[in-house]
Every structure is written in C-alpha cells, then in structure tokens.
Design a binder for these strands. Structure first.
Length: 267
DNA sequence: CGCCAGGGGAGCT
DNA sequence: AGCTCCCCTGGC
C-alpha cells in the first residue's frame, strides 16, 4: 500500500465531475478505479490517500493517471481576482484533476455520453466491459473487466450494442471501432499531434462532433486547452460572460477551468 | 452556409 | 406525464 499526502485532490469531486465512468465509490472514503486492465482501490482521508498497489505500479501508472505531479493550485492562482464567479467555481471544485485516461476508452465513452445522463452512461460502459472486455482477477481474487479492445467492438452487430443500452449510439461505436481497426484513423499518430490536428482527426470519426472531440482531447489526450462546450457550459457562459469568456487569460489550461465551471453548475 | 428534425430510449421530478 | 439528457448527422 502506498500512502501520499496530496493537495487539491478529491476523488469525490473527480468521480462526480463526469470525466471518468469507471470510478465507483465503494464505502465512505473508498473508491475503486479500473483503467485499461488495471484495478485500484483508494482510500482518502482529506489530503491523506492510501493507494492499494505496489510502489512500482503506483510510480509507473497511477501517479500519472491521477496527474499527481501537477500543482492545480497554480491554475487556480491565475484566475482573475475580479472574476468572483470563476474564483468560486474553482474553490468549489478545487479537488478536481484532469485524469490521464486512455484515448480509445475516451473515444467510446464520450460517443456514448452524447445526449445522455451520467447514470445511464455508467451503466452502458459497465455493460460493454462486462460483455466484451477481458475478464481479469486481482491478487485478492476479485473479478473485474477490462475495457473492450477496438477489435472486440468492430465486429459486433448493432443489436448486440443495443442490448447494452446504447440506443442510437450503437452505430457510432461500431463504425468508429471499424475506423480504428482498419487504420483509417491512427490513434498512435493522434497522440503525437497538436490539439488542432488531433481534433480534426477525431472529427473524422462517425458520431464525433465538436463537443465530443473536445472531451476526447481533454480527457484522452490531456490537451488542457480543449474547452468542451455543452448546453450547461453554454448557458453558464451566456449568464456570467455576456461579452465572452476571457480565454486569452488562461491559455493552455482552459479545459481545467471548464471542469470547475461544469462541476459548479452541476450542483 | 444556417436551421432543425430525428434518433431510441432512460432517468428524474 | 413531461422534461431532460455533457449531441451528431443528414436533409432541406
């Protein structure tokens, strides 16, 4: 078990901020997170965090996954002192971090998220993992399921994904999986691209529009300048920034502020 | 180019 | 029963 003191890190807020749908609260301060083929339990007591894993796995995977080497206070400190709304939003969600999640998982996750709610998105993801992801076992004998590989989804019939509760999003997932498997869209290449180029490439995928592409850039590529605009964000910006959001003040970490606003508006 | 119906329900009040 | 859901595609 690894013990760490971390500032500006709150698993409750991260799990509620709607960026990760494979993080489950499992008791008062205990969270289970599945990422790729890894399984982790974390217990959090304010700034004290207890990660149930080996040192090497923590150093090589989870530390990066939770973005623990980044000081989010640096971002919050740069907020315009005259902007009371944004300051309050950041204060309210100061424990949020932008996780470094897998690109492929984020593509499918945010295809499913469109015109959908958190409860159902979580259920959809669980369904496809349990049916089409590889079954794994922890050292203590707990069964869990990895995220299905592109090949596993590309060969499905629409009805099989309909049964996972995806609705009309089934055809997007199958078509996108086919594009990845065939190599017409190259994920390894996208990981090396600038934000603009990566986004343009993602927009080639059937079912990926402006908003979903930005979510993928932010959560799957850690492109912090991506600023996904959904109906809630649009409304919030119209109310609090009638003359436009001051993107120029926050170059390079716009997406972090987007998360603070999104989480703030959620409450 | 702008507009908007339709997709297929399920979750929440 | 009605409204919403971190929308995108395709047709006009």
């Amino acid at each position: 078990m690894i013990e760490r003191i971390v500032n500006n890190f709150n698993l409750n807020q991260i799990s509620e901020s709607g960026q990760c749908f494979r993080m489950k609260k499992n008791g008062e301060n205990i969270f289970v997170i599945i990422a790729g083929d890894q399984y982790l339990e974390v217990r959090q007591e304010d700034e004290r965090c207890f990660f149930e894993c080996e040192e090497a796995v923590f150093e090589n995977f989870w530390k990066g996954y939770f973005d623990l080497d980044t000081d989010y206070g640096e971002y919050i400190g740069q907020i315009d002192s005259k902007d009371a709304y944004l300051k309050n939003a950041a204060k309210h969600g100061a424990g949020i971090r932008i996780l470094r999640q897998d690109l492929w998982e984020m593509i499918i996750t945010f295809l499913i998220s469109q015109q959908n709610n958190i409860t159902r998105i979580t259920r959809c993801i669980r369904n496809i993992c349990e049916r089409y992801g590889e079954e794994k076992m922890t050292k203590s004998g707990k069964i869990y399921y990895a995220f299905p590989k592109p090949e596993a989804l590309a060969n499905l019939e629409r009805a099989q994904l309909d049964a996972c509760n995806l609705g009309y999003r089934s055809k997007y997932v199958i078509s996108t999986a086919k594009s990845i498997v065939s190599g017409s869209v190259d994920l390894k290449a996208i990981e090396q691209m600038s934000y603009e180029n990566a986004k343009a490439e993602l927009l080639k995928l059937y079912g990926v529009g402006e908003k979903v592409a930005d979510c993928i850039c932010l959560f799957g590529l850690h492109q912090l300048q991506a600023f996904p605009v959904d109906t809630h964000i649009r409304q919030a910006l119209e109310v609090h920034y009638p003359d436009g959001f001051p993107f120029g003040l926050y170059r390079g970490f716009e997406g972090v502020l987007q998360q603070y606003i999104f989480y703030y508006e959620l409450q």
